[in-house]
């Protein structure tokens, strides 16, 4: 069982991800935007972070950058779950330190498989 932080401004999407992860036996914490996610990250330690890109305020890529600046999150896997699938934005994601990229809509099996790969 892993502790996972899920960041997405869409409640529906957050709940779908949480449902899938909780069903697989993981402990999930939700955040609606980058600022809230950073606040959660400062108080607790997570084994994995899953974030959207397009969010109000701080976007997902900025969040990844900010998380990588925290010592506890230097080596924590961070997956980006977004509708964006362009090569340039993916390259930006890799540049700021994202571990993986999943394009929405996601299949629960694919999410769980990717998660296992990343956690192993």
């Amino acid at each position: 069982m892993a502790r996972i932080l899920v960041v997405d401004d869409s409640t529906t999407m957050r709940q779908m991800v949480s449902f899938t992860l909780a069903d697989a036996g993981h402990e999930v914490t939700e955040a609606a935007d980058g600022a809230q996610a950073l606040a959660e990250a400062k108080g607790r330690k997570f084994d994995l972070v899953i974030t959207d890109v397009n969010m109000p305020g701080m976007n997902g890529l900025d969040l990844v950058k900010s998380l990588r600046a925290i010592d506890e999150f230097k080596f924590t896997p961070i997956l980006v779950l977004t509708t964006e699938s362009g090569a340039d934005v993916k390259a930006k994601g890799r540049e700021v330190g994202a571990t993986g990229w999943i394009v929405k809509p996601f299949s629960p099996e694919v999410l769980i498989t990717t998660l296992r790969k990343v956690l192993d």
Binding site: S10, T12, M13, M16, F19, T20, N54, T83, K104, P105, F106, S107, P108, E109
Partner: peptide, 17 residues
């Protein structure tokens, strides 16, 4: 249930767009 999750996501993505 997985199909339901995907359908909900489609709907949500379109709504966000």
């Amino acid at each position: 249930i997985n199909e339901i999750i995907v359908a909900l996501q489609f709907q949500d993505i379109t709504q966000q767009k």
